[in-house]
Amino acid sequence: MYEAKTQPLLARAAFARRLALHAALALALVVLSLGAGMAGYMLTERMSALDAFVNAAMLLGGMGPVSPLATPAGKLFAGFYALYAGLVFIVSAALILTPVLHRLLHRFHVTGKS
């Protein structure tokens, strides 16, 4: 997927496409995670779609739930979803930064500049 050490630096247009692909994958992960969170809140806490969206989005954004949780199943879901949301943040950041860091390191190797 990435160029080897012996290959030249990727052209800017191809790099922009690679970066866009990685950003699209990160966005898809966030959207799917938001949908799963909404479904979980709707099933375990009987929240409306809007309330489930707010709670899931706040957890994915690192803020925490908005509505108080009433059921044991909802509290368990929220706990596991919060742990999952932390991993989604790390994976999304890695997906977006990987092409940039690879290009930087590849550039230093190809040109010998530091």
Results as ranks from 00 to 15, higher is better:
M1L: 12
M1A: 12
M1R: 11
M1W: 09
Y2R: 07
E3M: 06
E3N: 14
E3P: 13
K5H: 11
T6P: 00
T6Q: 13
T6E: 13
P8V: 08
P8S: 11
A11L: 12
A11D: 15
R12I: 08
R12L: 12
R12G: 13
F15H: 07
F15T: 02
A16C: 09
R17S: 05
L19Y: 08
A20S: 12
H22P: 08
H22Y: 15
H22G: 12
A23I: 12
A23T: 11
A23K: 06
A24Q: 11
A24K: 09
A24I: 06
L25S: 14
A26Y: 00
A26S: 10
A26F: 01
A26G: 10
L27S: 15
L27A: 15
A28L: 13
A28W: 03
A28Y: 00
A28S: 08
L29E: 04
V30N: 00
V30T: 04
V31P: 03
V31F: 10
L32K: 04
S33W: 02
S33Q: 01
L34G: 03
G35K: 01
G35S: 03
G35Y: 02
G37N: 05
G37T: 07
G40A: 04
G40W: 00
Y41I: 06
Y41L: 07
Y41C: 06
Y41K: 03
M42L: 02
L43D: 13
E45W: 06
E45M: 07
R46V: 11
M47L: 15
M47G: 02
M47D: 05
M47I: 05
S48A: 11
L50S: 14
D51V: 10
F53H: 05
V54E: 02
V54D: 02
V54S: 03
N55D: 13
N55C: 01
N55K: 02
N55M: 00
A56M: 01
A56H: 01
A57E: 03
L60M: 04
G62M: 08
M63S: 07
M63A: 12
M63T: 01
P65D: 07
P65H: 10
P65S: 11
V66I: 00
S67C: 05
P68D: 04
P68M: 05
L69Y: 06
T71G: 06
T71Y: 04
T71I: 02
P72C: 03
A73R: 08
G74Q: 02
K75G: 00
L76I: 14
L76D: 10
G79F: 10
G79M: 09
F80G: 15
F80T: 08
Y81A: 04
Y81F: 15
Y81M: 06
Y81H: 08
A82D: 09
L83A: 14
Y84R: 02
G86C: 07
G86V: 08
G86H: 06
G86I: 06
L87T: 05
L87F: 13
V88E: 03
F89P: 01
F89G: 05
S92K: 00
A93W: 05
A93Q: 10
A93F: 08
A94S: 14
A94I: 07
I96K: 08
T98G: 03
P99C: 05
V100S: 05
L101H: 09
H102L: 07
L104F: 12
L105S: 13
L105W: 11
H106E: 04
R107F: 10
R107K: 15
R107C: 10
F108E: 03
H109V: 14
H109D: 15
V110F: 14
V110S: 11
T111D: 07
T111V: 02
K113M: 03
S114I: 13
S114F: 12
